[in-house]
Write a protein that binds this DNA or RNA. Structure first.
Lengths: 144, 144
DNA sequence: AAAGAGTATCTTGTGCACAACTATCTTGTA
DNA sequence: TACAAGATAGTTGTGCACAAGATACTCTTT
């Protein structure tokens, strides 16, 4: 039993530590463009969602509003996206990629390629690990 | 191929996101004691290592010195540990748990138990996932 | 003894993570 | 219409993550 508890503890540390190691893998590709990993996540989700609200981005990235507000402002200040209060619903802020932001798509692709090479895993291994992580995340979201 | 790249991308996001979800699981147990998850990691590694240097803790937790220095100072200010420059090697700072720090051991155990219940995984599932994460971390440390 | 390499730690600065609180707006209900 | 409930964002404050540069020390080599 104690053994299991120690394993649980280690598992969580492994997730925590490996997550930061993987984030570091992106750095050599993203930093030359002045981007951080969370900024990369936000921009990629924007390219997939298209123009959307801050709340939409938060759901896609699981990032808090308190994280997204300053992050989006920094990206808007650099001209990569625009933030406009919605005319239809004045509570909502609409986020859109600018042409400068769209121009970063090749960088996102490069980052993905770089990561694929760095992982050193087969596609099957990646799928299997991903399934495990998804199941765990699902369980934590809905412990039902 | 593009498919694989998307998988890689998602895998990394899953790690990043799941890591924060698991950290959040610790919060209900740690917060009443005024502890954060990184502080918990440092204190647990101290209970396992015994008195040691800041560098030892950094290797155990994979935390940067710039993270550890203020973190340790906060814990020292609260009387949970002591920081003393080593007499033998004046470069090194020795970290020791105080009795107040030792008294938190039951909290660490409670956190582990809480997490074990929250994960909803069998011991075998935990072991398997952990093995995968260890292999990946090892590969990233030594891409040889 | 003195210089240089290597190590351990600290300092500073930017950005993210998250909690608590506030302001504003929409919608359902009376 | 008016109001309470709930949602959407913003603001503020603390702590962590990490890079870059500074400081101080040890050890080896000369």
């Amino acid at each position: 039993m104690t053994e299991t508890r120690v394993l649980d503890d280690l598992l969580c540390f492994d997730l925590y530590s490996l997550s930061r190691m993987v984030t570091a893998l992106y750095r050599p590709v993203l930093e030359p463009h002045g981007l951080t990993y969370p900024q990369y996540l936000v921009l990629v989700s924007l390219t997939r969602l298209g123009t959307c609200s801050i709340g939409d981005i938060g759901r896609a990235t699981r990032l808090d509003h308190g994280t997204l507000t300053p992050l989006l402002r920094r990206l808007a200040d650099r001209g990569l996206l625009t933030l406009d209060r919605s005319a239809a619903d004045a509570r909502s802020v609409t986020v859109s990629l600018t042409p400068d932001g769209e121009a970063l798509r090749p960088v996102f692709h490069e980052a993905q390629c770089h990561l694929g090479e760095s992982l050193g895993m087969t596609e099957q291994q990646v799928r299997r690990l991903q399934t495990t992580l998804h199941q765990l995340a699902e369980h934590l979201d809905n412990p039902a």
